[in-house]
Structures are given as C-alpha cells and as structure tokens.
C-alpha cells in the first residue's frame, strides 16, 4: 500500500501540490486525472521519489520513498518522455536496467518480445514514437517491480497494442498484485482500466474514490409529472444541475440512487429515467464544483 499524507510541493513561490492525501491499495490500478497543469506529473514524481516533498510524505508499506534506494528498487516510473542512452539498442537498454533492478526477469523480457514483435537489436533512437512507447512498456514490465507508475502511457499506442498492454498489466495485477498508478487525459481509457480514481485540481485532491462508487454516487435523472415538480424533490435531493425543457425536468443529483428513485416514484411520474454519468461527465462536474470553467457543456 502506498500512502501519501499532507504532501506539499512548491516550485519557488508556486504551490504545485497542496495537502495531498491518498491511499493506494496494493494490487490496484489507480488513476490520477486532472486538468492541464493540475499537478499530476509533479504528484507522480513525488510519489516515485524523484522530488523531495516540502511537507508531508509518500510512503510505501510505512517506508519513506524519497532517497530510499531499497524501496525505489521496487518501483518503476515510465515518464511521458522516457530517456534512453544514445545509440543503445533495446537489448542493451534492457541489460542496463537489469544491472540496476534486482527484480528484472529475463523470462518476462523474452515473453514480451513475442508480444511487441520489435527487433531487440534495433537502436531505440531509430524507432518511431509509438514503437519507443512500446519499448519502454516492454522494459518496464520486464523489470517486474511491485509498483509501476505510468505518466500518460497509452497515448501514442494503437488500439490493438493498447488492448494487449492492458491485458498484460491486468494479468500482472492478478498474478502478483502489481500496483499501477497511471495518469491520463483520456478519461474513456481510464474508465475501463482503473479501479480507483483521484481527481486533482490546482494542486489539491478534490475526489478520491473507488471508480464504481464514484459512478454510483452521481447520476442524471430525467422525469416528468402531469402537474408541477413536487417541492419535496428540490428540497430533499442534492441537485447539482437543473434543467427544464417543456414538461421534462433533468436533474444531476449526488447521493444514493435508490433513494432518489423511490422519492420520485412516490409522486407517480409519467416519465422517469435514471442515467449513469460517464467518467468524463463526472470529471467535468467535479471540476465545475471546484471552480473550473464548465459552462453548459454538460447537458
């Protein structure tokens, strides 16, 4: 388990991270989403021990991560712009990592060779951008670390490769409780990938939850009554958004879905539809509540 508590990180006067608290269970696929410049990469770099926290800590199984070689050996960070030694081939890069990470597995490297189907003797600098991405994921998985941190990792991979990589990662999660921390802009992608989500906005966590709880806790209701909308509804429901078009009312409601449904059913609506929100809509909404421009893109 990785625990982040009261974490602050400043760049000069700029507060990049403010009082971050996260709990990342072992064996989970943990997604970090946020607006541009929200502090995702800073957070990942602090969790992986590249940056020193100004206040607070990031710990894995109660051990500080920063400046702790013994712990850092157990995690690998795939940057969105990975570094390779000039003129190194894939094979040479692998043997470099092998010399650093005791957990490195030749067997995994060989198995993954068949998945990625790239000539291991090729120089990395000569590969295309998408292939470089595949190489770093290939190497990262060969390292067999307990934790894998991925900064927008799947962007740049084609659909077939993305599916394959997901499958391999899921297998590792199941097999040996690999913990994956992943950031992305592509919310559709994260929706199928993660089991936990943290939403961060201007350096703070505004939401951290199990993805299904997150989705169950906010939903869109469309309904119509033959008469007016009963007062009790607007009083008792936690309504984030309200729209009336003709007889049909649309609410975006936070809270228990069953309770809201029962409450409306009591008044015998002539139309009632409850629609779950997509992660994208939830994100936009949470961001809206946090003061981020959202206007009327939602409905």
């Amino acid at each position: 388990m990785i625990k982040v508590e009261g974490l602050y990180k400043n760049y000069g006067d700029f507060e990049a991270l403010k009082d971050i608290n996260l709990t990342i269970p072992k064996g989970s696929v943990y997604g970090i989403i946020g607006s541009n410049g929200a502090g995702k990469t800073t957070l990942l770099k602090t969790i992986s021990g590249i940056y020193k926290p100004d206040k607070g800590f990031a710990k894995i199984e109660d051990e500080d991560i920063y400046e702790n070689v013994h712990v850092k050996k157990r995690m690998f960070f795939v940057l969105d712009d990975p570094y390779y030694y000039h003129n190194y081939s894939i094979k040479e890069m692998a043997s470099f990592y092998k010399s650093i990470y005791e957990s490195y597995s030749d067997e995994k490297y060989e198995n993954l060779k068949d998945v990625f189907k790239i000539d291991e003797n090729k120089k990395i600098k000569n590969l295309s951008k998408g292939m470089k991405r595949q190489v770093i994921i290939w190497l990262a998985l060969s390292l067999n670390t307990d934790v894998l941190i991925l900064d927008e990792p799947l962007d740049g991979l084609d659909a077939v490769m993305r599916q394959k990589v997901k499958k391999i990662i899921f297998e590792e999660v199941l097999e040996r409780q690999l913990t994956v921390i992943i950031s992305s802009h592509n919310l559709r992608e994260l929706e199928d990938f993660c089991d936990h989500i943290a939403i961060i906005h201007s350096g703070s966590v505004i939401k951290e939850k199990d993805i299904d709880e997150l989705k169950n806790n906010i939903f869109k209701i469309q309904f119509a009554f033959s008469g007016d909308v009963p007062k009790e509804l607007t009083e008792k429901l936690d309504i984030l958004y309200y729209k009336q078009s003709g007889k049909v009312t649309t609410f975006i409601v936070k809270g228990d879905r069953k309770k809201a449904e029962d409450l409306i059913l009591k008044y015998e609506p002539i139309l009632l539809d409850i629609i779950p929100l997509s992660l994208e809509e939830i994100f936009i909404h949470e961001m809206g509540e946090a003061g981020y421009e959202k206007e009327n893109i939602l409905l």
């Binding site: 989970s28 696929v29 599916q163 499958k167 899921f170 199928d192 990938f193 993660c194 089991d195 299904d212």
Partner: peptide, 11 residues
C-alpha cells in the same frame, strides 16, 4: 473473464 474481456480483475 479478465483476459477474455480485457477488464480489470479487481472489478
């Protein structure tokens, strides 16, 4: 199921 559907095993 996880392999067949490419779904997170935790889910």
């Amino acid at each position: 199921l996880s392999t067949e559907l490419t779904i997170n095993p935790n889910t």
